[in-house]
Write a protein that binds this DNA or RNA. Structure first.
Length: 349
DNA sequence: CGAAAAATAT
DNA sequence: GATATTTTTC
């Protein structure tokens, strides 16, 4: 009996450790729990045991029906298993610990535990950092709506910075039907200038939503490529209300810059001789994966699920001997940081 | 109109 | 602090 009791204690200790990773090792926890339970039952059949495991176990035993849990382990458990969504498979054996019913939903998952997470239950959501962000996503979608706001004036005082994932989501979601993705820049931020004196106020940044960019590309295609099209022509073809020449011009500038030297995001496949970066399709250069869709450009029925891909029409790279007039800083673009920045340039969605 | 600087955003 | 994106200036 003594040994059995020790065994139970050992199991309980083990369980306390596992408990922290309940989400990662649910079955493991389950097994240990069952083992403990069986041992207990065995013990309880013998007459003298009852007082034995009261207060004996290291885990500061509670009632016999409840599995004792070390306090220092309880804290993290509370946060992890109770605060998160209740997608927990709540079907643990009846005696499952879980005194952490104090479900304080508001509690955030502790950082250390986050780092220990072995998988993401919700891969589609912006990974981790969930609770607060999710809220803002909803909010933003609601008011951002996607209506075309040529100038967004985000009046709200101060901290209306948009969360990065949020804006991406919002734009992507609205891209199918709306022309202007609307909110991208968080208004805000550094602004803070007294808004009056309307004339010196800096223009609100235009966010080039995927749909806007599609139009841009379409216009470019009609005009014969980015190197021959001019901002004014492009703007006229795009027929987007509120779009200015300057904005198109700026976008064109960036477009030329990027198409000139496409910087594959994040992948360090710099010098890989095989796999050409571009493929000639009908006289225009497009990134390999995209060329099939070029023909389908235009309206494309704006179905979000279509993933219609509109290949950038790039001018053929100038011969090496050509002048390097575009002295864009040739910095070796090491940034993974930037990868998400120009996500829709070479994107696959 | 194009290039580059400046301002912002991430 | 480094980049990326957009606006302004030249």
């Amino acid at each position: 009996m003594q040994r059995c009791q020790e065994y139970i204690e050992a199991l309980e200790k083990e369980r306390c450790k596992i408990q922290v990773f309940e989400r990662e090792l649910p079955l493991c926890l389950d097994l240990v729990t069952q083992a403990i339970e069986s041992c207990r039952q065995q013990l309880s059949w013998s007459p003298t045991t009852t007082e034995y495991f009261h207060g004996q176990s290291e885990c500061s035993g509670q009632t016999s029906s409840e599995v004792p849990v070390l306090e220092e382990f309880i804290i993290p458990i509370k946060r992890s298993s109770c605060s998160d969504d209740d997608e927990e498979q709540s079907e643990k054996p009846k005696n499952n610990n879980k005194d952490c019913k104090s479900n304080d939903k508001s509690l955030k998952k502790s950082d250390w535990l986050t780092s220990f997470q072995l998988w993401n239950e919700t891969p589609d959501l912006p990974t981790k950092e969930d609770s607060p962000r999710n809220l803002s996503v909803i909010e933003l979608k609601k008011n951002g709506g996607g209506a075309f706001h040529p100038f967004k004036k985000e009046k709200s005082g101060g901290t209306t910075k948009t969360d990065p994932p949020v804006s991406v989501l919002a734009i992507a979601a609205s891209s199918s039907t709306e022309i202007g993705g609307g909110d991208c820049g968080g208004g805000s931020g550094g602004g803070k200038k007294e808004e009056k004196e309307g004339q010196s106020q800096r223009k609100a940044r235009r966010c080039w939503s995927p749909e806007l960019h599609r139009r841009f590309l379409h216009a470019l295609q009609q005009l014969g490529g980015s190197h021959v099209a001019t901002p004014k022509q492009i703007r006229e073809l795009m027929k987007v209300d509120g779009l200015t020449n300057d904005e198109v011009k700026s976008h064109l500038q960036k477009y030329r810059l990027h198409t000139r030297r496409p910087t594959p995001p994040s992948i360090h496949n710099n010098n890989n001789p095989q796999q050409p970066q571009f493929v000639v399709v009908g006289g225009i250069w497009v990134p390999p994966p995209e060329y099939t869709v070029v023909a389908a450009s235009g309206e494309a029925s704006g179905v979000a699920t279509t993933n219609g891909i509109y290949a950038p029409i790039a001018a053929p790279p100038p011969p090496p001997t050509q002048r390097q007039q575009y002295n864009q800083s040739n910095q070796s673009h090491s940034g993974e940081r930037g990868s998400h920045r120009g996500w829709w340039w070479w994107w696959s969605v």
